[in-house]
Amino acid sequence: MAGAKEIRTKIASVKSTQKITSAMEMVAASKMRKAQDRMEATRPYAEKMRQVIGHVALANPEYKHPFMHAREVKRVGYIIVSSDRGLCGGLNSNLFRRLLRDIQELDAAGIEVEYCTIGTKALGFFRRVGGKVAAQATHLGDAPHIDDLVGTVKVMLDAYDNGEIDEIRIAYNEFVNTMTQRPTVAQLVPLAEGEDAAELKHHWDYIYEPGAKEVLDGLLTRYVESLVYQAVVENSACEQSARMVAMKSATDNAGDVIKELQLIYNKARQAAITQEISEIVSGAAAVAS
């Protein structure tokens, strides 16, 4: 009965792995729903903010905030949103690959790059391959809080204000649906203008307290923060759904492995029984003769 015991132990170990992966799948599924709700909840704020900024910019065309003014690009800052944990398929690798393509293009054009990372996976990546990381934030948890991002975003905005970087881009995974996450790189600052120009026909002249500049400063900083926060929340919904899919396929794989092992085990057991019977029979024959 060669190896039957080993096979039994192996089956038991694969079974316990399967239990873990299927539990992780279920946990990810419930977390994904929550993350999706959170994603929905961030929309009204960003929308309202966009409206208010549109109104202020229209009522006040003579003052142009630096965030709304494009300039020649010599250095680009990237805010990279990644997950804190692994076991989520190719989510982070796909994002880094998309990013790398961008960086290579900039590199070819002689434009320098610096980074600001969110999540341990991005930090780990840059720790291995090098690169100028100006700021980082990790361990935001399943329910990220916008306050945890204020510092990181400010580092980049300050660098933009001081002219150290001329453009800020954000890289994150866009949530298309449960099965699809799309690695995305989008421009944050300067803000892409347009769209709202025709929306407001009669515009008010606002009263600003304390002044137009302070008000617009406060608004735009919060707007950029809310966009980064949205990206973080969206990325976390992506992480959970990617993990759910990865764990589902791991559970299925484990099932296949168990089936195969069970077959091998049954064969081995059958062979042992057959051998035993033939030994008994030949033994009995020897005694009878």
Partner: peptide, 27 residues
């Protein structure tokens, strides 16, 4: 400002003595 300093410091701590040039080939 304090939050920004904190974020910077975290990055410096995490990436102490790493080269500032990204090795594209390695990546």
């Amino acid at each position: 400002e304090a939050a920004a300093q904190e974020a910077k410091r975290r990055a410096e701590d995490a990436l102490a003595n790493r080269s500032a040039d990204m090795d594209l080939a390695k990546a």
